[in-house]
């Protein structure tokens, strides 16, 4: 019996030492991509309005719109892969996708593991809470329960900056909002555009904090060291500023969702330049 346990533990430790020694898999260069005729991009498939699948099975969203343009300008077909917060980076390090366009917030820790291109979106966080117990500042949240969605900027920000706040994390937006409606938390935080749009539809709730913290950015990511593809994306973003591409992207994908509650310039980043 003890032998089995010993053998087993030895097996696990050996495996982990081996996997630790793994370098990233070989990522494709821009030329290899052009030759294969296919650009593989990882996007979310259930996070409207950034990356989702519509009722006809077609990928749509702010990220997807850009993904399509990247493939088009390179002259290749686009293959979209459904990724989630826990495996976004694995897809890059194992070279299963060339680029990740999955609402990926730039943080220094993440920059150690992947290479970020120029940003194409900026995020400010908002906090929505019931009118009866309105939260008007971040300090109010300390010691209370805040609902967030896993893999979002809100989760990253609160974990890094406000350890006194108890985070209740769910996988999807729908779950987070339902949890708030059921009173499982004192407030909810995510992109302020999202909470504003939701508060309008749900009487009894108000956005008590409209922006908080510093502005975070969303950028495309490639495998660390994949310079050719990174350069291509950066060049594209700068070039597309001339036609105000990301504003068009906003109009096509986000305007209907947020309506008049949101000013596009608060969200869109053109040419990778933050104003």
């Amino acid at each position: 019996m003890k032998k089995i346990v010993a053998l087993f533990v030895a097996l696990i430790l050996t495996l982990s030492l081996i996997t630790a020694a793994f370098a990233d898999a070989q990522a494709r260069t821009l030329d290899e991509i052009k030759e294969s005729g296919k650009l593989v991009i990882g996007v979310f498939s259930d996070k409207k309005p950034f990356g989702y699948v519509d009722e006809f099975g077609e990928y749509q969203g702010y990220d997807v719109y850009f993904a399509r343009r990247l493939a088009e300008d390179l002259g290749v077909a686009l293959e979209l892969v459904s990724v989630d917060a826990p495996n976004r980076v694995e897809y890059l390090t194992s070279a299963k996708v060339d680029i990740i366009l999955a609402n990926f917030t730039v943080t220094p820790e993440r920059a150690e593991v992947v290479d970020f291109a120029l940003p194409y979106m900026k995020v400010a966080l908002g906090v929505v809470s019931p009118d009866a117990a309105l939260i008007t500042s971040v300090e109010d949240l300390r010691g209370k329960t805040l609902i967030v969605s896993k893999g979002t900027t809100a989760e990253t920000w609160f974990t890094a900056n406000e350890p006194e706040v108890n985070l209740l994390k769910f996988d999807t937006y729908t779950e987070t909002f339902n949890a708030l409606l059921d009173g499982r938390g004192d407030a909810l935080s995510t992109d302020n555009t999202e909470v504003l749009a939701w508060a309008i539809e749900n009487p009894g709730f108000t956005v008590g904090v409209e922006t908080l913290g510093s502005l975070d950015t969303i950028a495309p990511a490639v495998q660390k060291g994949n310079d050719t593809v990174l350069a291509y994306i950066d060049d594209e973003i700068v070039k597309l500023a001339e036609e105000q591409f990301f504003h068009a992207d906003y109009d096509a994908t986000l305007k209907d969702v947020y309506g008049d509650a949101v000013d596009p310039d608060n969200l869109v980043v053109e040419g990778g330049v933050i104003e």
Binding site: A85, V89, K150, K169, E175, A179, R184
Partner: peptide, 26 residues
């Protein structure tokens, strides 16, 4: 899935925040 901090929650959490997949899964 219902926000209980069990082992899988913690692992996925750490992977999603810091991307140290190997360590978290180990």
């Amino acid at each position: 899935a219902v926000a209980l901090a069990d082992l899988m929650y913690v692992a996925k959490d750490l992977i999603g925040m810091y991307y140290r997949t190997d360590e978290a899964l180990l």
